[in-house]
Design a protein around this nucleic acid. Structure first.
Lengths: 230, 230
DNA sequence: CGTATCGCTTGATTTGAATCAATCAACGGC
DNA sequence: GCCGTTGATTGATTCAAATCAAGCGATACG
């Protein structure tokens, strides 16, 4: 299948408004690749070769320093990553690895930069995308600096409840969730236990919230932190 | 003075490449205002009316939740803030207040959006600016999640040493610095004391680093966290 | 089928950081 | 010059979270 025929990609807000010829030119150099789980896709510090789009599976973005590692984000279909490094032609700030078997579209960074320097609609879509990403990172910074670990977990569970509805699945291993939320796996276990008093039931990957009002009273969610858009 | 005559602003990377007529049109609706210290310029949650540029003084960006408050950034001449909210026409995620007597240029948000939808050069400059901002926030997120408070302080001191050179000034109150670094004022005091063993001397606002190699050995700075660009 | 592995949980303990409390120094206003 | 306020420091204490250690349960595998 040619990448340019992939309507899933074409309908992404990033590409939706692009002129047909710019889009086709951009996708001419792109290719699709399948990866098994636990494969390193990019390593922080390397210079950006490709812009990545996840069409199947899931990818973990993480960062390391001084032997420590932390999960920064999970990217699921259809989502992209490392747009800013691509645009700036700068080194990646995060590493990426597949969590499950995944299907990734790779678009040469230079093609992305070429397209955005000629196509106004694409340039504007990138502005919009970057502004959204930026605001989302600001939100997680606020989450980290203003809340303790139980509060972060409570708000995370409510956000997922809102996105997935009713009884839902934790869509990542608890160890990864712990790292994403900025705590240890041990502490995540204890935090879950602490939230049982607020109607949180977690069995393996299955989550049930039996008392949303109480949980919200504790979590105090606000759109200025908890509504992730884009 | 007409704002459009202000070459300081014109020479910002954001406006440098703009066509003359777009720039003039954009600045026609702009105005300059002087504020005393401790004035609230914007409050988080409000919808973006103006894009702000600091030409004199300094502005603190901070965020609040549930009665807590944290300093997110300091903006100094010539720097801008709240570009993403302006672009997205979305509520501010942070509040801003003047720290000293400050001179601020205010550009109506709608004018910024109008300019960027017609001027490709401006649109590209915004892409570049947002990508930089985004990467800078990712860096501070990594700083927060991967380092403890002494390590964050040590790296902060080294970054400032690099920017300001030799013996330099802490350009903000210690209480604000503490909040920015994600710790209490008491703990900042203790962290400074702990770094005396690594050649850090702090007298009031004056900082002297007498043993940079040792401090670097402790701090382990990396461009992937500590080189803030833009 | 047993057993090795891995992730999760639980309890005990330590540690880093916040809080509480008191003092001190600098500054501005009267 | 003298308070009153504000920010910085220091010490004592508390608390949240990390670490250490052990056991559990599921899954993979020889």
């Amino acid at each position: 299948m040619r990448v340019s025929d992939n309507s899933e990609i074409r309908s992404l807000s990033l590409f939706r408004e692009m002129a047909d010829d710019s889009y086709d030119r951009l996708m001419r150099g792109a290719y699709v690749q399948n990866f098994p789980p636990r494969v390193d896709l990019i390593v922080e510090g390397e210079v950006s070769d490709f812009f990545h789009i996840v069409t199947e599976g899931s990818v973990e973005l993480f960062a390391t320093w001084n032997g420590r590692e932390t999960t920064m984000a999970m990217v699921r279909p259809v989502g992209s990553f490392i747009l800013a490094a691509t645009i700036r032609n700068a080194p990646y700030l995060m590493s990426a690895r597949t969590v499950e078997k995944s299907r990734i579209v790779l678009i040469p960074s230079s093609d992305v930069r070429a397209a955005f320097s000629t196509d106004l609609a694409f340039s504007q879509a990138i502005v919009s995308e970057l502004a959204t990403c930026y605001r989302n990172v600001i939100k997680s910074s606020k989450d980290l600096k203003l809340r303790n670990s139980v509060e972060r977990l409570a708000n995370y569970l409510l956000r997922q409840h809102c996105l997935q509805g009713g009884n839902y699945e934790l869509r990542m291993e608890k160890r990864r969730l712990a790292s994403y939320l900025g705590m240890t796996p041990e502490n995540l276990s204890r935090s879950i236990k602490a939230l049982q008093a607020y109607g949180v039931e977690v069995n393996g990957m299955a989550v049930t919230l039996t008392n949303v009002p109480d949980l919200e009273a504790l979590a105090k969610p606000t759109p200025l932190i908890d509504t992730k858009s884009g």
